[in-house]
Simulated scan of single mutants.
Amino acid sequence: MEEIKPKLAIIGATGYIGKFITAGFITALHANKLSELRVLSTKSSDITKGFADQGVKVQIVDFTATPTLVAAFTGIDIVVSTLGTGPGTKESKLAILDALAASKVKIYFPSEFGTNHYDRCKNYQHDVFEAKKDHFRQAQAKGIKTIALLCSLIMESSFGKWFGLDTAAEVWTLVGKGETPVAVCAEGDIGHFAVEAALKAFKDPTNFPDFVEVYSDMKTMKEYAQAFDNVAGRSTKLEFTPMEQALAHYESTHHQFEYLLQILFEEGAFDCSDAKNKGNELLNPGELVWKLKKIEEYAQETQGRPWKDFS
């Protein structure tokens, strides 16, 4: 009996996270692991034309109009969303959920792809986290198998000034002591993990976990600094902000999200060593499916100076 292969649709394929997740699914399509791949977009662009050239079905939709979404989802088994939390997205996400239910989509991956704010950030009810939690619960309430793929920090966008890591000045300002493990996930690995999660969930949705934590590498911030220094031939100056002072600063910034993440680095929110669901072993046991990208490789790519030209 021929194996049934899923039909999958992606929302947000032209965005930052969407691009490398879509690349993973295009590879899966070409490897005959999917029977169809659709991309939903509000308009045609050079990016969507590039997708079409690779065998992807591009569908132009209005994300606030449920009927157009129902048409786009008809016949689809799995939907993966990378839609953000900006203005207007709340209404779009409600329309998406209505359309998922109406078109009987079996599995939904909402836009998570970050820290495990469900279990590891309970002391902070930040608007970003609460919006994601609400959307997840609403999807489950409609009877849709909903899966949060939690990827910690994105390796290629985490070692910059927005997190207090000034490569150009060779100074990293860390909350606490910088000795807590912090997991990161490479862009390409997120694409791989998303593909494997979708395929495994399609085969056995009942037993596939609702929350899956994955990562490419995990070191302390001190160890990350050393990895970059080893390549650049320099010694980054590490400055430390006491936790009490950091919490006061967080309150004074009206809960700036990037600064909250720096606090969470120290508090262990990105320490996946005790993950309930061993996502790496579930999706890539022993790294036999693909080799994960490690920080040393990224350090070589950036010559030990990531985001050095960022101002």
Results as ranks from 00 to 15, higher is better:
5 K>R: 13
12 G>L: 07
14 T>H: 04
15 G>M: 02
18 G>L: 08
21 I>C: 06
28 A>V: 03
29 L>E: 10
32 N>D: 15
34 L>S: 05
34 L>F: 14
38 R>S: 14
39 V>K: 02
39 V>Q: 01
41 S>L: 06
44 S>T: 13
45 S>L: 06
45 S>T: 09
46 D>C: 04
47 I>Y: 05
48 T>K: 03
49 K>M: 10
51 F>A: 09
58 V>S: 02
63 F>P: 08
63 F>N: 07
66 T>Q: 07
68 T>G: 00
70 V>G: 02
71 A>H: 13
73 F>Y: 15
75 G>I: 04
77 D>F: 10
79 V>Y: 01
82 T>Q: 04
85 T>R: 10
86 G>C: 07
88 G>T: 06
89 T>K: 14
91 E>F: 10
92 S>Y: 02
95 A>F: 04
97 L>F: 13
100 L>K: 11
106 K>R: 14
106 K>C: 05
120 R>G: 09
121 C>Y: 05
123 N>Y: 05
124 Y>R: 11
127 D>M: 05
130 E>V: 12
136 F>Q: 05
139 A>H: 00
139 A>K: 00
140 Q>R: 13
141 A>R: 13
142 K>N: 10
143 G>Y: 06
144 I>H: 05
147 I>V: 07
149 L>K: 01
155 M>W: 02
161 K>W: 06
166 D>V: 07
170 E>G: 10
172 W>I: 01
174 L>K: 04
176 G>Q: 01
179 E>F: 03
181 P>C: 12
184 V>N: 00
185 C>M: 13
190 I>C: 14
191 G>S: 07
192 H>N: 14
192 H>R: 14
192 H>F: 14
194 A>Y: 08
194 A>K: 04
202 F>W: 14
205 P>Q: 12
206 T>W: 08
208 F>D: 04
212 V>T: 02
213 E>N: 09
216 S>R: 07
218 M>E: 10
218 M>D: 03
219 K>P: 07
225 A>K: 02
226 Q>T: 12
226 Q>R: 13
232 A>P: 09
234 R>H: 07
238 L>I: 09
238 L>T: 03
239 E>P: 02
240 F>I: 05
242 P>F: 11
242 P>C: 07
244 E>R: 09
247 L>V: 08
250 Y>I: 02
256 Q>M: 09
257 F>N: 02
257 F>M: 12
259 Y>P: 01
259 Y>Q: 09
259 Y>F: 15
260 L>E: 05
261 L>G: 00
267 E>N: 09
271 D>F: 11
272 C>F: 13
274 D>M: 12
275 A>Q: 06
276 K>I: 10
276 K>M: 11
276 K>H: 11
280 N>W: 01
280 N>P: 02
282 L>H: 10
285 P>N: 10
285 P>G: 10
287 E>I: 09
287 E>W: 11
289 V>R: 11
293 K>F: 06
293 K>H: 11
298 Y>E: 04
300 Q>I: 13
301 E>C: 03
304 G>L: 12
308 K>A: 13
